[in-house]
Simulated scan of single mutants.
Amino acid sequence: MAVYNKEEYVAKSIESMLNQSFSNFEFIIVDDGSNDNSPDIIKKYAKQDSRISLIQNDANLGLPVSLNIGINAARGKYIARQDADDISKPDRLEEQLKIMENNRDIALLGAADELLDIDDIVFSKQTYDEGPNSPNHQNIIKTLENKGGYIFAHGSAFYRKEVVKKIGGYEKTFIYSQDIELWWRFHKNNYKIAYLNKTLYSQRIVPEKFRVKSVYQGKFKNYLQDKIQLDNYHFSDIDVILNSLIKARGEKDKFIDSYYLSNYWFILSKKIALNKGNLKYFIKYLSRALRERNMLRTKMYKLLGCIYLYLFHRTNRSDQYSENELIYLN
């Protein structure tokens, strides 16, 4: 687990791992130069539980570099990812380990997840039914190959250390979408990827993810798509793209803060609408979005769009899952 300034959530994340039904593991936490109370929180837990091993970077090196540091320090044969603001279900490691031990051909295993808001409320589940969008259909791999598409939460990943080191670990220039890039290399090198359609992970959706990530996500996906199609791995100019985007933001931070907080609540509302979730929280999130400072016309368009989706959209996703449904993605 890599941590950077997650003092608000890191304790819950750590506790979710320490309370696993399977207990024979080492918990490597890489603090990536945090300047909040995250290191002190981690140290407190490390004193209480000898399974925790804390590595502290001297500076903020970025998620891919920190994950590679953790992988290189690991002594076990498997790596289970965990994000510092997310929560693993108590049986997560036990379930995923059982699958990997009984299916030696699987190199990478993801799992269904649920989405949490900043108040710890579950507002959506990312499981699949057997409709045309089910991950056992070939269009999922096509999405991964052609669009750099999302197939499961990065934090739910469970993979063989030997394989991830053999294919080079995380690409350090992918500050975002590093999971998609790595999954594609699993696939390219003919290692099997599978998905357990059981909710084992809680992914927290926080405003910061939209404030920063949404600025760069389109550029990264387009860039990833081009590189995959060309089968050409020269990523040095990604930093040039990022620096240009950062400079383009200029002095608009105050507006951006309000804009992305508003967008955060609208996105949560949209996710509930797409999954026909709880009406109470749908209304709550919309009202929070409307209270943020933002352009009125933009908010009205988003409000009407969310209401339309909730009333009329039909989805193939389901909040129900098959307890032992293992789906091969390639």
Rank of each mutant, 00 (worst) to 15 (best):
L116V: 06
K209R: 11
L311I: 14
Y176I: 13
D32T: 09
G110M: 08
E95Q: 11
Y9H: 02
R211A: 12
Q225M: 14
F25H: 11
A248C: 09
H137E: 11
D49T: 05
L274S: 05
F25E: 11
Q96L: 15
L286H: 04
S124G: 13
Q20D: 05
E323V: 09
K89W: 00
H234Q: 15
L116H: 05
Q320H: 04
M295A: 07
N60Q: 10
N139Y: 09
A46K: 09
R293F: 02
S287N: 10
A74I: 13
F312L: 13
K125A: 10
I52A: 03
E101G: 05
I41W: 00
L93W: 02
N139C: 03
I87K: 01
L290A: 03
E323H: 11
A157M: 11
A59M: 06
L268S: 11
E15N: 05
Y301C: 01
H137W: 02
L63C: 06
Y45M: 01
N243W: 07
I14P: 00
Y328K: 08
V122A: 06
G277D: 01
I246C: 06
L196K: 12
L97D: 05
N37I: 00
L245M: 15
E292F: 01
I151T: 12
Y191W: 08
I42L: 04
K299S: 10
I241W: 07
Y281S: 02
S244R: 13
I69Y: 05
Y259C: 02
I238H: 05
L290F: 04
V163I: 15
S50W: 00
S66Y: 01
R204H: 10
E171F: 07
Y301P: 00
G218C: 02
S34P: 04
G277I: 02
E181S: 07
S318P: 04
S88C: 13
T315P: 03
F266K: 01
R317N: 12
I272Y: 01
A84F: 00
Y223E: 03
Y216K: 03
S262D: 05
E251G: 08
K172Y: 03
I41F: 00
F235W: 13
K254F: 07
G305H: 08
F25P: 04
Y201T: 11
E26S: 12
L304A: 13
H234I: 15
D119T: 07
Y170C: 07
S287P: 00
A273H: 01
S21K: 13
K280F: 14
I141H: 06
L230R: 14
Y259W: 03
S134P: 06
Q225F: 01
L67H: 08
I121Y: 13
L97C: 06
D58E: 10
N243Y: 10
Q96H: 08
S244C: 06
H137M: 10
H154Q: 06
I307N: 04
L109H: 07
D237L: 12
A59R: 11
M100C: 09
N189G: 02
N57Y: 01
D49L: 02
